[in-house]
Write a protein that binds this DNA or RNA. Structure first.
Lengths: 227, 227
DNA sequence: CGAAACTTTGATCTCTGTCAAGATTAGTGG
DNA sequence: CCACTAATCTTGACAGAGATCAAAGTTTCG
């Protein structure tokens, strides 16, 4: 699993944000660790803190009254787990395997953002990227067959993971089949069957905690999500 | 159809943004009209201009290589048609019936935004609202039956329209069945059948360019989108 | 008035969901 | 370290919601 720079402020600012702004952000950040399965925050809760991911994978999801679940996104290091500035969380977040996050006191972060155009800028860009990624997902759920959804998911996931840990033969899939299913609007049996079918066709190989994409399975199916 | 304040800058700023910022925004705005069916901009195009909607309805959509279409959102007065600051449009936009927009030269708008924290703030909030609305839609497409999708669409649409034109017995539906279908990830026959089924059950009445919701059909199905 | 566009309705098929049983993996305690 | 249990994943059989194909009805507009 991604073990890289491993500090949210650095990852979030990238090369942009000037040194002073980065320093300010670091000053507010409180590092915290969570075990797999633990909940960082829940839908509807007052957003006293903001969270940025340093290490690991987080699933962001909504629960419907009748128990159905929609995984809205999987967060990776460098992502805010929710838009800061929002009054309340509009989804829940929990750790997929062990993670580390940076916690920011909401009020102070707000002040920091509103007085630093550079950070504000990064935030708008982050929001725009998230929005586009959500629209990609929308397009996928609105039009794609089970196979298209799974393949597109794998390709997008690989791209995102590769950015963090360039080397890597197999694509790590730390989340459960159920998580993937809830992300793709399918049932877990369908996800499982689709994996099997792709494997029989030698398009992928299913390994313990991931998959290996075989021969240039570059099915450019749907526009790739997030940037 | 919505005939209200009818000027984008005013609608966008609401009560927030101070007078000077609003004046600046007005100064950059060039009003333009389009007929129904005309395209304002297309996916992939360089974003030389930004557009804000003053009057009418705009469908924002993506086309897949094989001709399938996903309507990503319907814009109403007060909405930006796309995030300013983006280099290129990530979807196409065309008029549903007659509309008026404000066109802004991208570069100057960018400068205005980056020097006015108030406007920047409004923009972040707009982005956050759009993101949440996209996630609501995701949840709907990932979990909802045809009927849930249609009912949720009607309720959300009514809420948004009501904000602009408070009085209104029937909910206006200026878009085509095909547009609704492509928004909800269904086929137009399914949308049509679902309308018929709801009508037989006396939940709605289908009228020439809209529907009337009958007796408290307050099916609080999914979290209501956008804000 | 008449043609084109749009909508509704019908008949059938298919993909995915549902229900159920096995197989595999992970985790625990002896 | 192994046996045993619980959790997760895979596979099978069947059913159903929505897609597809086709035709009739309605509205729009020149």
């Amino acid at each position: 699993m991604p073990r890289t720079s491993s500090f949210f402020p650095t990852l979030f600012c990238g090369d942009a944000g000037d040194a002073r702004e980065l320093a300010e952000l670091k000053r507010l950040a409180v590092p915290i660790r969570f075990d797999g399965g633990q909940t960082i925050f829940s839908e509807g809760e007052l957003a006293r803190n903001a969270y940025g991911l340093s290490y690991g994978v987080v699933r962001l999801y909504r629960l419907l009254p009748d128990g159905r679940r929609q995984v809205v996104a999987f967060a990776l290091p460098g992502d805010f787990l929710a838009m800061p500035l929002a009054e309340r969380f509009s989804f829940s977040a929990d750790a997929v395997g062990e993670i580390s996050v940076c916690r920011f006191p909401q009020e102070e972060l707000k002040r920091l953002i509103q007085t630093n155009p550079g950070i504000m800028r990064l935030l708008v860009e982050f929001a725009a990227r998230e929005l586009q990624s959500a629209q990609d997902q929308l397009t996928l759920l609105g039009n794609g067959s089970a196979e298209e959804r799974v393949v597109t998911f794998l390709l997008n996931w690989r791209r995102r993971v590769a950015r963090l840990t360039p080397a890597a033969q197999a694509i790590p899939l730390p989340m459960r089949r159920q998580d993937i299913a809830d992300f793709l609007g399918l049932k877990l049996e369908t996800v499982s069957r689709t994996f099997s079918k792709l494997e029989q066709r030698n398009a992928i190989r299913v390994v313990p905690h991931g998959v290996v994409l075989m021969g240039r399975e570059q099915n450019g199916l749907f526009a790739g999500s997030s940037e």
